[in-house]
Simulated scan of single mutants.
Amino acid sequence: MSNLFDGLLNLIVDYNNFINIAFILLLILAAVGYIWRKAGSAYSIINRIWFLIVGGRKYHDPEIEAFYQYSSDIEKFNVNFNMAADSTGHIIKFKQWTLKYGVAVRMLSSIRGYFDIERLKIRKGSVKLILLALLLCAAFTLAAVIPAIIASQNAALLKLKPDEPWIWLSDDHATKFLKSSQRDRWKISAEQCARDDGDQRQLMTATALSADSIRSICQAFSSKKDRQYINETIASQKVFWWFSALFLFMAWVFYREGIKLGRIFDGRKMLLTKYRHYRKQHR
């Protein structure tokens, strides 16, 4: 696990520029995918791209234009009402059904994917799925903490030797990256580096760092070249904000899914109440 963590950190810091580009492309694709999923198709997106490149909003053949408008109406309905209709027949049937029973459309819109507009039924809910979604939400929230810590620190995250721990190195002190016990709360300062060899040996015992690593840390406090490297490393670590944002987004997705799964029970209860009320009025 430690080797995997070390490899990931090295990979991310070494290729931070490519990762920035990759995340920007991912955001664009996610936005297009979200619109595609909401609409149920990509007619409007492709039509707008075609118009920007070639020009011309309408088809010359009136029958093709009418069919495009038919598809656009379905797409627009799916976006506005968060549904997954395949035809205008489903939409008209849905409209008549909601008016007949006085169904709360907003409730059904909030559980997209679990309401079948063709059969006008809500799928059964699952408490296990709700708990799983909330558990994943908590896991991704916790996973977002470490990248956020790395990105926000005004110190470089470095590993001086393969068998030594990761450390924070700033202009005037060094500390251990992850502190699991009181023993890990050591600190190497510029003042300590100026003392005699006896203190250096004590630092080796306290930090589990080699003499060469401690000398490199002490040298970094006075070397202009090393300070520049530290500042460049701190700047490259900002890429970790992307990972923190990604994990928080995933946490939000699973939280939202958990809430949606919970609303299934409210939706089924609402429909049962509406059906009973309708039958009672039309006996």
Results as ranks from 00 to 15, higher is better:
residue 274 K to N: 09
residue 247 F to P: 01
residue 275 Y to W: 15
residue 271 L to A: 04
residue 153 Q to D: 09
residue 47 N to C: 07
residue 27 L to G: 08
residue 177 F to N: 03
residue 236 S to N: 11
residue 201 R to L: 14
residue 222 S to W: 04
residue 94 F to S: 12
residue 172 D to V: 14
residue 182 Q to E: 15
residue 238 K to H: 10
residue 144 A to V: 04
residue 32 V to H: 02
residue 149 I to K: 03
residue 12 I to M: 08
residue 170 S to C: 04
residue 153 Q to M: 13
residue 153 Q to L: 11
residue 263 R to Y: 11
residue 186 W to Y: 14
residue 207 T to H: 06
residue 104 A to T: 08
residue 118 E to W: 15
residue 142 L to M: 15
residue 147 P to N: 04
residue 145 V to C: 06
residue 167 I to W: 02
residue 139 A to Y: 05
residue 264 I to D: 00
residue 101 Y to G: 03
residue 64 I to D: 06
residue 90 H to A: 12
residue 181 S to R: 11
residue 88 T to K: 14
residue 198 G to Y: 09
residue 223 S to N: 12
residue 87 S to D: 08
residue 67 F to M: 14
residue 135 L to K: 02
residue 172 D to Y: 14
residue 61 D to E: 05
residue 202 Q to Y: 09
residue 249 F to P: 00
residue 57 R to S: 10
residue 181 S to K: 08
residue 195 R to K: 15
residue 212 D to Q: 15
residue 182 Q to S: 14
residue 270 M to I: 10
residue 146 I to A: 08
residue 165 P to Q: 02
residue 270 M to C: 06
residue 263 R to Q: 11
residue 3 N to G: 11
residue 101 Y to S: 07
residue 94 F to V: 04
residue 75 E to W: 04
residue 202 Q to A: 13
residue 260 K to A: 12
residue 269 K to W: 10
residue 102 G to R: 05
residue 189 S to L: 10
residue 44 S to Y: 06
residue 280 K to G: 14
residue 180 S to I: 15
residue 232 E to T: 10
residue 90 H to Q: 15
residue 41 S to D: 12
residue 36 W to C: 07
residue 266 D to P: 03
residue 165 P to R: 02
residue 42 A to K: 04
residue 83 M to P: 01
residue 209 L to P: 02
residue 221 F to M: 01
residue 155 A to I: 05
residue 151 A to S: 12
residue 63 E to Q: 13
residue 98 T to W: 05
residue 15 Y to S: 12
residue 30 A to C: 08
residue 70 Y to S: 11
residue 34 Y to K: 06
residue 114 Y to N: 13
residue 61 D to P: 00
residue 231 N to Y: 09
residue 245 A to H: 03
residue 40 G to K: 04
residue 93 K to V: 07
residue 167 I to K: 02
residue 100 K to H: 09
residue 107 M to L: 13
residue 137 C to M: 13
residue 236 S to F: 06
residue 151 A to E: 02
residue 35 I to R: 05
residue 25 L to C: 15
residue 212 D to W: 09
residue 265 F to A: 12
residue 76 K to C: 10
residue 200 Q to F: 15
residue 218 C to Y: 06
residue 52 L to C: 06
residue 87 S to L: 08
residue 126 S to N: 08
residue 36 W to Y: 15
residue 36 W to Q: 07
residue 271 L to C: 01
residue 195 R to Y: 12
residue 250 M to E: 08
residue 242 W to A: 05
residue 144 A to K: 01
residue 11 L to S: 11
residue 76 K to G: 06
residue 126 S to D: 03
residue 204 M to L: 12
residue 39 A to S: 10
residue 77 F to I: 08
residue 240 F to Q: 02
residue 20 N to Q: 07
residue 243 F to L: 09
residue 111 I to H: 01
residue 165 P to G: 06
residue 188 I to G: 03
residue 247 F to E: 03
residue 108 L to D: 00
residue 82 N to E: 06
residue 163 D to R: 08
residue 163 D to W: 07
residue 268 R to A: 08
residue 233 T to W: 05
residue 239 V to P: 01
residue 184 D to T: 08
residue 114 Y to A: 06
residue 77 F to T: 02
residue 83 M to D: 01
residue 114 Y to W: 11
residue 220 A to G: 05
residue 192 Q to H: 14
residue 175 T to A: 09
residue 249 F to Y: 09
residue 144 A to M: 07
residue 267 G to K: 00
residue 170 S to K: 04
residue 33 G to A: 11
residue 96 Q to R: 14
residue 67 F to V: 04
residue 234 I to T: 04
residue 241 W to R: 00
residue 19 I to W: 03
